[in-house]
Design a protein around this nucleic acid. Structure first.
Lengths: 231, 231
DNA sequence: TAGTGGTCTAGACCACTAT
DNA sequence: TAGTGGTCTAGACCACTAA
């Protein structure tokens, strides 16, 4: 009937029918075969379009049961996790950083639990303040398993941000990431140049190489920071 | 050579080579055609595997230039945006809510800007406290364009959460979402039963139907709330 | 068990872009 | 302009699952 071309056009047409409420939330839509006949294309093309919509959370698909319009749409959002330096430079500011301290020690329980460490295992602990145009904009608190590093810690931590050095040097196989909010401690406030108790936006990441923990990092962004995406 | 089967096996094998540092960050990997020959499968199958890895941010692909291992991996994370009631019930708690107030008025500048409103346009303003096992767990502040509602505001706001009523009733075509942190105001603290100034985790969403604004909502989660995902 | 989505194939043409 | 990824096709078989 109508004549969309390409899987993106089919995706758009399907979305449109949902928006026009031709197909209501929870309702079954025609099979791939029927849609392919209607649109005059191969079933694989319809499949591609519907699969993308299912990944986006707009449709729910099950073999034999068919394809339904999701009852709770917009359940998924894909975030770009920024690389600190690139984010700052992308705003046209000059990037810099300052290593606050660096030591080998036994991490606190919370970190050990997050990395599933064996009791007593020691890690490198590096704390870094990141700067935009010379002003503090992010406090990084990182625990690092030196055992997985090919050549130990980099000799000159003042020329390469540890963060970038890591992603270029160490492979990983799995990880998790979490977002939350926390009040700034006195130390964090002093380092970031904000009031104690100010609301920080926290990003925590952990990564593993197989079952071997690599690193756990906590990024504390001062008030005003927003992580956003379109749907 | 090796014998993976299916695009998922190929994806796994490619990931493995990156993890083993056979293919270093920034390096070009073989063309789809060569990989298809090596794996003994069709090029479309390799394409599917590499496309998924590119979507995940592990590879960067450009026509003619070829496929490279991303220099800054793990740049994307897909979050499940929870539906409030389902999230609470999923924890085995009883869901409830209480409408704090509800009025028609002109929204503040920030909301008007976010929704790109014409000057002087009035919206419904509904503030709701969501409860888990009877205890406050989320404060919702919503502005709503009644003009797009088929039958106006629902007659009985005490039986259906406005949030769910909306997603089931109103179509949307675009939106954005943002995460940030903020200190609790005195009123928010009182409603949520926390200390004033406590760090709230804020989710803000805006949705449109074409160019017509539908709703802007701000969700304030008390300390302890975490939004997390695996990579 | 039958219906539906998931995937694969072999080949083709197109779109983009480094050179 | 030539190389590479992006997509489409027509058909096939398989995997899952509702009935």
């Amino acid at each position: 009937m109508s004549a969309p071309q390409g899987w993106e056009a089919i995706r758009a047409e399907v979305l449109d029918r949902i928006h026009r409420r031709d197909w209501l939330p929870g309702a079954i839509i025609p099979t791939e075969e029927k849609l392919a006949a209607e649109f005059g294309c191969a079933r694989a093309t319809v499949n591609r379009a519907l699969r993308e919509l299912a990944t986006a959370g707009v449709l729910e698909r099950r073999r034999k049961a068919g394809t339904r319009v999701a009852t709770h749409p917009v359940r998924k959002a894909t975030l770009d996790i920024p690389v600190i330096r690139l984010e700052i430079e992308g705003r046209g500011q000059r990037y810099g950083f300052r290593v606050i301290d660096r030591a080998e020690s036994e991490p606190p329980m919370t970190i050990a639990a997050r990395l599933r460490l064996a009791p007593g295992q020691r890690l490198w602990h590096v704390r870094t303040l990141h700067l935009a145009d010379g002003r503090p904009c992010l406090f990084e608190d990182r625990w690092l398993n030196a055992a997985v590093l090919p050549e130990g810690l980099p000799a000159d931590p003042d020329t390469t941000s540890l963060n970038e050095w890591l992603v270029k040097t160490v492979a990983y196989t799995a990880g998790d990431i979490a977002f939350s909010a926390a009040n700034a401690t006195a130390e964090e406030a002093a380092l970031l140049g904000i009031e104690p108790g100010a609301a920080l936006f926290i990003i925590e990441r952990s990564t593993w190489l197989g079952a071997v923990p690599i690193t756990a990092v906590r990024l504390a962004h001062p008030p005003g920071y927003r992580l956003s995406t379109e749907m």
